[in-house]
Design a protein around this nucleic acid. Sequence first.
DNA 1: AATTGTTATGAAATCGATTGCAATATGTTC
DNA 2: GAACATATTGCAATCGATTTCATAACAATT
Lengths: 360, 360
Amino acid sequence: MQRNPKKPIAYIIKLLYNNQKHGFGGGILLTIYDIAKAANVSASSVSRVINGKSGVNNATRQKILQILKENNYVPNEAARILVNQSSRLIGILIADIRNLHHMEGAYYIQSEMDKNGYNGMIINAGYDAKGLAHAMENLNQRRVEGVVLMGSVFQNRDTEKAVRQYLPEIPIIMINGQLDIPNCYSVLSQEKEGIFTCVEFLANHGRKQIAYITNAPTPSNLLKQNGFSEGIAAQRKNGVRGWIYKDDRDDSLKGGYEAMQRALLEHPDVDAVICAVDLLAAGALQALLEKDVDVPRKVAIIGVDNSIYGQICYPRLTSLDNQIFSSCVIGAHQLLEFLQGGHPARCVSMQTVLVERETT
Amino acid sequence: MQRNPKKPIAYIIKLLYNNQKHGFGGGILLTIYDIAKAANVSASSVSRVINGKSGVNNATRQKILQILKENNYVPNEAARILVNQSSRLIGILIADIRNLHHMEGAYYIQSEMDKNGYNGMIINAGYDAKGLAHAMENLNQRRVEGVVLMGSVFQNRDTEKAVRQYLPEIPIIMINGQLDIPNCYSVLSQEKEGIFTCVEFLANHGRKQIAYITNAPTPSNLLKQNGFSEGIAAQRKNGVRGWIYKDDRDDSLKGGYEAMQRALLEHPDVDAVICAVDLLAAGALQALLEKDVDVPRKVAIIGVDNSIYGQICYPRLTSLDNQIFSSCVIGAHQLLEFLQGGHPARCVSMQTVLVERETT
DNA sequence: AATTGTTATGAAATCGATTGCAATATGTTC
DNA sequence: GAACATATTGCAATCGATTTCATAACAATT
């Protein structure tokens, strides 16, 4: 073992000349000037080395490189952003970051952007216009170069207004929704068609009395509901009937539970249920199990999202997968293409997939 | 309605003098110089108004205020960070942002910091040392003023090394874990004691053959496991026996399921199961239901975290609540106290609470 | 009217990194 | 050895905001 390990040169310098010009302030965070002084060169050369640019003698470069490493130099991002006029930061807006499905999306977006040298900042925007505006102002302040809106909750006038006010000219990617503003690109999940085929699927398996349970009337939920109505209409000739139950509360699990109770009361012969999200379906399942209704023999259930929630249920939930992974990867690539000066597709549609498990 | 709404003054100026000194570059983002020019004052005065400082004539202040508002001015955060030598940013490190329990913690931390004028940046660090170091370098680059480590996965030498290397001097808050470095504060959940009392609880309800299912050997999981062992030891006099099952895979649901199957095979008389996390318990419950074992009559189950997962299960899961909400609020306040120059408690312990539902 | 005190205002330096341009040093060719 | 080309290097301006200090303007006091 070495007795007297070499002390970082610039660190010592930092301690000695503690009140000179250029970055000898408090703390032990070094600036390129500290490094330059230690290497007996100018800050320009240090900068060139850091950024891997040519125009530095190889011997000098190696020396600077070593001092950078020895002293664990990390550039000041704020200074870089300021001079480069580019933050390489994008915002990922989520109404509630405790929503598992949306965080999964954020994860994919973030890792995709990361691979391309961008940082993704996850922001909890909340559900109201005020929180949204506040979040967008924050993102503007940070000079983000793009924003991803996660989920159709953001498809509304308030968002359009806030975007126009705080983030004009910046590319917006919307996962599962559309906004009528310039530079907005979107990935849409064909949930309406998906629910339509769910009805078809159930009808083909002999189900005739189908309930549909939905919660907050987000654009996505309204689309799905339409898909249900149209699906029922298409199956009417086969004697299929349908009813819609709404329960617009925060707790979807309880919402599904109580909606199902109502459905059983009003239509005891119901033999299938489609729920707008898995959590509603989990609640509905509980209501059925509580009444000792045989699932799927007597009543079939289908949820949406193909989330872990459905796999926790027992019997395990059949669910319509809206391909959040693919949607987000595509969304991230739309954004990257735009940032690189290209012209991404305005809107990409994703087919849904019915994942059959034990409740159908 | 007004016919000719006043065009924002500074915006027009921006368009006219598009290549002057000071901030007339591309885009339509205004600088204080733009505002200053529009108001016929100096940038100093604009800055003073923006920051609500005294030393500006009231008439001038009102004029500047109006122009700021009209033009939707938002300050450049990078420039502010640079000159103020303060980012008012903290990092929230999470191994996997798709982990619901940890994101819930992040949510509480973020909103608590938000109330106090700090921004919380959520970073997905991954489970390996390389990802961790990368995350910390990133946070250093952004000059964060504090870091919250979410969960005991970060209680290890790699983290200590990475902190020392990239974030020396910066306060670290660890939720449910401890680190042997300066300026590290922590909130510990007394999970060991909690599991101990779970064993006691089960024994008091006449359970004699208790299985314990655990997954990845994180410090928290090891503690809980010790709590189980000690609990069993304490109940041995009452004829209670216990067995530990480990299943160290990514998919906890499946892990719990298969561990339970093994337990049933090796010890058919098992009459209670404690699982290190709710998701394991959900899997274990499925294995029991599949074998038509009566829960809780024949076998009782207890999980840990009191998460939504447990409420999706049917019967609904009894779970040991480790008070993530309170832990995070306390952690955030430790951080805030430190940042305000105070001396927060080095370590706060949180009592756990057994939330009884239908599996006991 | 002269002096002092107070308020309002702007010029200039600063934060840390990048980069165009000028200056210097080195190498090449005839 | 002179003229020219090329490779290194550093100075200084720049990004946008904040803040100190000096000056100007004005009111109050004797």
